[in-house]
């Protein structure tokens, strides 16, 4: 299934590993510690199949990707996940696939990985809070996982759930949102080849703060749709409840497609700032569908995307 997408960007455009490792070594002790559970240089590479996906994009460094995270189960500050997520037990891991599928049940991550091809996908990530990154994910298409379970024709939506482990997640003792974290996609969005389940980045296993061991990545939607540390996937007929939409439907729509013309009620979405540009980083215009309109535009033909935000 790998290699369905092609682009001009070469894997050689990614920051060479030697460079980012050197940068990490240059950082002061506190900074290095803040990396938390980031895979060290000793970790074997995943050997993901190279793809050219990600034209013209230069990925953020590993320290940018692993020290600036929204993962409220580990605290609401951007640095909290890097500090606390090491407590998350990621082995063994399994995903409960249930609902309208032919083979419901518990799917062990190791078994899943035996029957998929891992690919590198360099995607833009646009947070609803107006910051952005480019991440060289490693993963496989969600469609491949759904095919293993056998989606029944009556299924219209896919619902996802993050692990809820009060002993390992200090943030869930606070009612920041209604735990566990939930997300959802329309079935055609879930089956789209851009939609992946990621198990790593920079060709190394997923750091805990980024959603280890396996997370969703939907690059044309605001970051919170790309749910982390997935333990449950349900195929359903009705639009499932989702965490931020439950919290404030006016601010966080079910679709949550990146759209510079649909402001968040509390801030404009016209611009964004790439993380890592320092104190004088410039604002950049946000792209419709986060730059993936050519690929996913047809999913929303005829839909009012302001109303269905």
């Amino acid at each position: 299934m790998a290699g369905r997408y092609k682009s001009d960007l070469k894997w050689s455009d990614v920051t060479p590993k030697a460079d980012w490792i050197n940068r990490r070594q240059l950082m002061a002790g506190s900074g290095a510690l803040a990396l938390g559970s980031t895979a060290g240089p000793a970790v074997a590479s995943l050997g993901a199949q190279k793809t050219d996906w990600g034209a013209g994009l230069e990925p953020n460094t590993v320290e940018e990707i692993t020290t600036y995270n929204n993962y409220y189960e580990f605290g609401t500050d951007k640095g909290d996940p890097a500090m606390h997520a090491h407590a998350l037990t990621t082995e063994p891991w399994s995903i409960e696939i249930d609902g309208l599928v032919d083979q419901p049940g518990s799917y062990g991550l190791e078994d899943i990985l035996k029957s998929v091809t891992l690919e590198e996908r360099i995607y833009r990530l646009r947070c609803v809070e107006r910051w952005s990154m480019v991440v060289p994910w490693v993963g496989f298409e969600l469609a491949d996982l759904l095919a293993m379970a056998g989606v029944q024709p009556s299924a219209k939506y896919v619902a996802f759930e993050t692990a809820l482990r009060p002993d390992e997640m200090p943030g869930v003792s606070y009612p920041i949102i209604d735990w566990p974290y939930k997300e959802g996609l329309r079935l055609d969005e879930a089956m789209h080849p851009l939609t992946i389940m990621a198990t790593g980045l920079y060709d190394e296993p997923m750091p805990n703060q980024n959603g280890a061991p396996i997370r969703l990545v939907v690059p044309w939607k605001y970051g919170y749709k790309s749910i982390k540390s997935v333990v449950r996937i349900s195929l359903v007929e009705e639009q499932p409840p989702t965490a931020w939409n439950n919290y404030s439907a006016n601010e966080y729509g079910f679709y949550s497609n990146v759209n510079p013309d649909r402001d968040h009620p509390r801030w404009s979405q016209k611009y964004e700032r790439r993380v890592g540009g320092g104190l004088f980083a410039k604002q950049e215009p946000t792209l419709f569908m986060n730059g993936y309109a050519d690929e996913v535009g047809s999913l929303y033909a005829g839909m009012d995307l302001i109303e269905n935000h």
């Binding site: 950082m27 900074g31 320290e63 940018e64 020290t67 600036y68 951007k78 640095g79 910051w131 700032r273 993380v275 890592g276 320092g278 104190l279 980083a281």
Partner: peptide, 17 residues
């Protein structure tokens, strides 16, 4: 401000400052 210039405010120093 000095921290922000020297990486002491993390990778997104503007918001932090």
């Amino acid at each position: 401000f000095w921290l922000g210039l020297n990486g002491g405010l993390g990778v997104e120093p503007i918001k932090e400052l």
